[in-house]
Nucleic acid binder design. Sequence first.
DNA 1: AGTCTCATGTAAGCCGTTACATGATTCA
DNA 2: TGAATCATGTAACGGCTTACATGAGACT
Lengths: 181, 181
Amino acid sequence: MKRKTKYVLLGLLRDESLTGYELKSAIDNRMSFFWQESYGQIYPELKMLLEDKMIDVLSDNNETKHDKVKYKITNRGLSVFNKWMNEENEKDTVRSEALLKFFLADSTNLDALTKHLEIYNKHSVDLLELYLQYERQLTGLVGVHDNHKYLLEILSLGIKQQELYSQWSREYLKKIKRNVL
Amino acid sequence: MKRKTKYVLLGLLRDESLTGYELKSAIDNRMSFFWQESYGQIYPELKMLLEDKMIDVLSDNNETKHDKVKYKITNRGLSVFNKWMNEENEKDTVRSEALLKFFLADSTNLDALTKHLEIYNKHSVDLLELYLQYERQLTGLVGVHDNHKYLLEILSLGIKQQELYSQWSREYLKKIKRNVL
DNA sequence: AGTCTCATGTAAGCCGTTACATGATTCA
DNA sequence: TGAATCATGTAACGGCTTACATGAGACT
């Protein structure tokens, strides 16, 4: 997949001005079920976006403070973002070592399978809680921002996905413990 | 994520002897919802596994035919695989440009959103059908191989996932068309 | 005084895709 | 005979993670 970091940053900055650190947090906390970025991509990309006039530094009142820079999107950035929105998507890339092990497991690995299922279940439940929290936060502000409706739609997919994962792994564990498998 | 191709190949070869090409097909057809590999990884990895005595060439009857080589796993390969099975998993990596656009969409992109939802829906339905086909194929052979029970468990997750994706996108499209959003 | 979170940034190196090259076999 | 699928392989390039470096502010 070609460089997409640009669009993630631009997309998030349409909504509110954020620092590089805050952008990373937003991606980790709200988008982790379908996307991730590292600082090694974010900071260099912000620099390039600034050079290309797609974002601007939001001048903070504090003088001589060079750290903590909030960025805002420019019209040029907006138009680049909108162009991307209309382009065709590249195909998804996914790699889940847990699911790989579940796929490759058999009766000779029952102990390992059980261990990984337990970890997977805990992780799914935790992520589910994180997204539910975000949902509550958004529904508490209904009407404030129009595009929350769209955010809630994709969030509901993330929630249902985590529900599926946690239920599936719980049931699988039950079967193993009952010696059904 | 560190190189995992080795374990995918080893894991698949535990079940049956396959060529590099067949390994690629198996990954594409049955594991695409959580994994993918390219020829550029598979062939060099097979070479290394052979050098490291983790796999062997399955001597085919045809003499002087150097193409179409089936590989079988060795005891050494099996033990490396089992060791990996018990190790901790690295965290998943996921990148879905479609979901990224769904997350970043708002009322100014309704047309693009609709277009991408339609493509996404079609893709989910197609994948669902592919997995259902594989499931039918496996249930037709129940009892033949013990580990089909485990395969059916993870397959059912893939099926439920695709059902979720296709239902979610269908409902989302309905809402847009009814002007609810 | 020490730890944690916030905050920014770079460079090396790994991993994996893509593009290219080649040829056999099957089917229409 | 031409197209599609089966089949194997390599090399260059690009993208991303990891490790490292640095420091402020908040809290204990």
